[in-house]
Amino acid sequence: MNGGKPAAFDSVAAFFAQALAIEVEAAERYTLLADQMEVHNNKEIAAIFLKMAAIESEHRREIVRRAGDTLPTGIPADVSWTNPDGPEAIAFEDVHYLMTPRQALLLARFNEERAARYFESIAASATDPRISAFAAEMATDERLHVSWVDQWLETFAADELDRADDPDPPVYSE
């Protein structure tokens, strides 16, 4: 999924509100995916997703520090962006219980990259120079995350697994 068109913001606070919402959603999504992997006994991937969740949570705290006084009082429940999911959240349907660390990290990389592009486009199009500056900072952060994931990826050999090779058939439960 692409990042969609950048939103227009009427204030710096509105920008931060959305940036926060994006990070909150990304962290929550990684946590949920970690839960799914844990339930399905893929602990290795659960650990990767939890680590990604921690990165996103730290990023959220960084935004709070950076925003200082301009931070809105309440995080809006409903911040919209033009694509169905947040620009940084992994889609639920993109995972599989037998996914490999490389697959998980490539997915994470794809989403960090997507987030970077999203903030870059805001930096380029915002009319308020302060918003541009903050968006550029966000994009730099996301690029840094991409580089972290890249480093992480190097520790795993190519291990593409065909899901159709699942040796265990599904079970019935009800």
Binding site: A8, A13, A14, F15, A17, T73, A77, V79
Partner: peptide, 13 residues
């Protein structure tokens, strides 16, 4: 335009 609601939402997802 993205606006900020005046008050924090009563409930979060």
């Amino acid at each position: 335009m993205n606006m900020i609601p005046a008050t924090a939402p009563a409930f979060k997802p």
